[in-house]
């Protein structure tokens, strides 16, 4: 079991959850039971275009079972959806809270994108 969470910074389990999917700075890959984790730089962050597609491809290739993020755009959603990878929407910044809400099945499963393309460019 592994979950991918979008991160604002690289500060172990004290990192902040990012509301952005395709252009978030880091990804956390974590086993919610053992709490074993790794943090990876998001190579797609600097893409001139198609960051959502590139990030989603990377996540799919990591063979995770679910994704937790704030907002996911249409192209990234298409890739994750095609991979049958559920995307859960989380509004806060705390990783512990996100995992707890996930375990208690309190997070919304995004069956559709919840933001426009390019929303993460800033």
């Amino acid at each position: 079991m592994a979950i991918a969470i979008t991160l604002e910074d690289n500060n172990g389990l004290n990192s902040k959850v990012s509301s952005i999917f395709g252009r978030c700075p880091f990804f956390l890959l974590i086993d919610p039971e053992t709490k074993k984790f790794t943090i990876h730089e998001n190579e797609a962050k600097k893409a001139s275009g198609g960051a959502g597609v590139q990030a989603a491809q990377w996540i799919v290739d990591q063979k995770v079972d679910a994704v937790i993020t704030g907002n996911v755009g249409p192209k990234a959603h298409t890739v994750l959806f095609a991979a049958s990878l559920p995307v859960y929407q989380f509004d806060g910044t705390n990783i512990e809270n996100a995992l707890e809400a996930y375990a208690q099945q309190k997070l919304t499963n995004l069956f559709e994108p919840n933001t426009d393309a390019h929303a993460g460019i800033r």
């Binding site: 797609a44 893409a47 001139s48 275009g49 198609g50 960051a51 597609v53 590139q54 989603a56 491809q57 799919v60 192209k75 298409t78 890739v79 095609a82 991979a83 049958s84």
Partner: peptide, 16 residues
């Protein structure tokens, strides 16, 4: 693909 127009998931190509 320099423009991230292609993804491959579940053995299938997705083209944007």
């Amino acid at each position: 693909c320099e423009y991230n127009a292609i993804a491959v998931v579940n053995g299938k190509v997705l083209f944007f």
